[in-house]
Design a protein around this nucleic acid. Structure first.
Lengths: 126, 126
DNA sequence: TAAAGTAGTTTCCTTTTGGAAACTATTAAT
DNA sequence: ATTAATAGTTTCCAAAAGGAAACTACTTTA
């Protein structure tokens, strides 16, 4: 009885800690565009306009806002280059690169999901 | 020149495909509570009220709505048990379980992030 | 001098999201 | 009879999120 309660208690605490960890991650990645921006930057440094072209559908206002939040959280760096027309390069910081595993898993899941959906469509079309 | 363009083109296409895959994943997981609900269910089956107690801050309306969307997308199953007061059990489907890698990476990142934040606080407090 | 590209910011507006509380319906216990 | 617990649904409302377009400011090119 005491043993059983102890085990349940330990289990519950483990769930809570993990759920809190997920929530901590989500708090950093919240917003419609943040994960897409990080994904884009995971392929290499990008300028403002490059990001706007690569992240489908994002406007300048949202891109600017999301980049600021990512920078505040130490996930990306912003570098102003004194080129002819001024350019700004955004890059994942070392800390931002620790998100790579999450991104990779999302890429894998999404690729697989698309295959599943297409297969499902085919089987219904028969 | 032609070689270089070809390489760039291939690279660009790879990015686009991967970014689209991330977007596909995000479309399934969008909403304030979906990932938390899936995380909770990744520890085992849960009843409606259990989920509401475990997912911190969620209300009945949102829980109900998010569960419906998850069921529509085939990620969870809903089983009505004919117990004394009727109970309903929610469970990850086999397909929902394929999200486990993403959840695990989010748990790991969040756990690590919390340690980093605490360490940062300590070093500033010195 | 005008157009176009860089990187944003600001304003105004709409849509989406989400919360609180009340309500339905059933069953069991007090 | 009343309370409580199950699992939701519905309504009404507020806040947050986000988009379009105009605007700033600088430089280069035509």
């Amino acid at each position: 009885m005491e043993n059983k309660n102890t085990k349940i208690s330990i289990h519950d605490e483990g769930c809570k800690v993990k759920l809190r960890a997920v929530q901590d991650t989500l708090d950093i990645l919240k917003g419609k565009w943040k994960i897409s921006i990080i994904s884009s930057l995971s392929f290499g440094k990008r300028r403002f306009m490059e990001l706007q072209r690569e992240v489908d559908g994002i406007g300048a206002k949202m891109l600017s806002k999301e980049l600021q939040e990512l920078e505040i959280n130490g996930l990306i760096s912003r570098t102003v280059c004194d080129t002819k027309p001024i350019t700004v390069e955004y890059e994942l910081s070392d800390y931002g690169k620790t998100l790579q595993n999450i991104i990779n898993e999302m890429i894998n899941w999404g690729l697989n999901h698309r295959v599943n959906i297409v297969e499902n469509y085919k089987s219904h079309a028969k």
